[in-house]
Amino acid sequence: MLEDLLEKYPQQEDQLIEILLDYQSQKQHRYISEEEIARIAAHLGVSESKVYSVVTFYTFFSTEPRGQHIIQVCKDVPCYINGERTMRSVLEKLLGIRVGETTRDKRFTLEQTSCLGHCDGAPAMRIDDKTFTNLDENKIKAIISEYRGAK
């Protein structure tokens, strides 16, 4: 899979972040392994350290396996004053995990994120590449059960 993906990209250093984003989004547990970092580094003709420095700088990337779905709850002021704590505790209870953890069935990882840019719909969360706004307990429950139902 990685080889096919690399073929699509020119061998230029500035493609690194695009490659990492593209690859990680397709990967089962949404992380980049050590071997993959080495392969990408070789493809672009840069050192592994350089790739690793990029992977560890940006919050989207992980070097550890995560869940099938990444749930990110916003923690910044507009969400905070509009019920961010409730949103977080509902999710923690619903999933049986705390922020930073992955459910035992590897379906969900719960993370905190900086502002999602949906402050007019606070509180907001993002699951994979979709953003959900104006959340309350019922809405969150409905969303999660939908994700649970879907494969």
């Binding site: 910044d76 002021v77 507009p78 900086s114 502002c115 840019g117 949906h118 402050c119 007019d120």
Partner: peptide, 11 residues
């Protein structure tokens, strides 16, 4: 890269 909390007009 509208990342400043509280801003969403560029979106």
């Amino acid at each position: 890269d509208e990342g400043e909390p509280g801003n969403f007009k560029d979106r």
